[in-house]
């Protein structure tokens, strides 16, 4: 079952948030209450976009399960692999602790570093699924532009990785 964070890293978030809240509360109750109100309001504002994202991801993960990614990236030639990796990395959302072990398996199966770099970097930088949230803050144009640039950056990373590992040239 895929999950979003790589491990129990979110514990440290709550240690920090809890301590900050405590210090704030003793320093100024009124301000702390106001902070919580702001937190709630900001969350409610973005909630519809979150809901759309969750619906999208639940469907996309059904259509593109991990086994399928592993099967498709594990075959075929490099150029095709890069294109496929870019598409899969862009449309799926996968936490590091699923993506990297999967990448490790692909590596053992003989998949090129270039293809793996394309997959992991697009996974990080290009978010078709997070589009509803990004759009709510940044607008349609900037969201599309940022993701397009993210795709380009991922391809640059793949090329440099490919050259370094002797897969290109």
């Amino acid at each position: 079952m895929p999950t979003l964070q790589s491990d129990k890293m979110f514990y440290y978030l709550y240690i920090i948030a809890g301590l900050a809240l405590l210090v704030s509360f003793f320093a100024n109750r009124g301000k702390t209450l106001k902070a919580l109100k702001i937190a709630a309001r900001r969350f409610v504002n973005i909630l519809p976009a979150f809901l759309v994202m969750l619906i999208l991801i639940s469907v996309v993960l059904f259509l593109i399960p991990d086994e399928m990614i592993s099967r498709y990236l594990g075959t075929g030639n490099k150029a095709f692999g890069v294109i496929l990796a870019a598409v899969l990395g862009s449309v799926t959302l996968m936490p590091g602790f699923v993506a990297f072990p999967l990448s490790g398996i692909l590596l053992q199966k003989g998949v090129a570093y270039t293809v793996i770099a394309t997959f992991t970097t697009t996974l990080m930088m290009v978010g078709v699924i997070t589009y509803p949230i990004e759009k709510a803050y940044f607008g349609v144009k900037v969201t599309i532009l940022r993701n397009a640039v993210g795709l380009l950056i991922a391809l640059c990373v793949a090329v440099v990785i490919g050259i370094f590992f002797g897969e290109i040239f």
């Binding site: 895929p2 964070q5 900050a20 704030s24 919580l36 937190a39 900001r42 969750l54 639940s58 059904f62």
Partner: peptide, 29 residues
Amino acid sequence: IARNFASFSLDMLKIIPGAFILIGLFDVW
């Protein structure tokens, strides 16, 4: 699909309250 939805919602619920509390505190302080 329902399982995917539930598992991702749960994961986000783990992170979001903490993140938004920090955002709120940042805003006032």
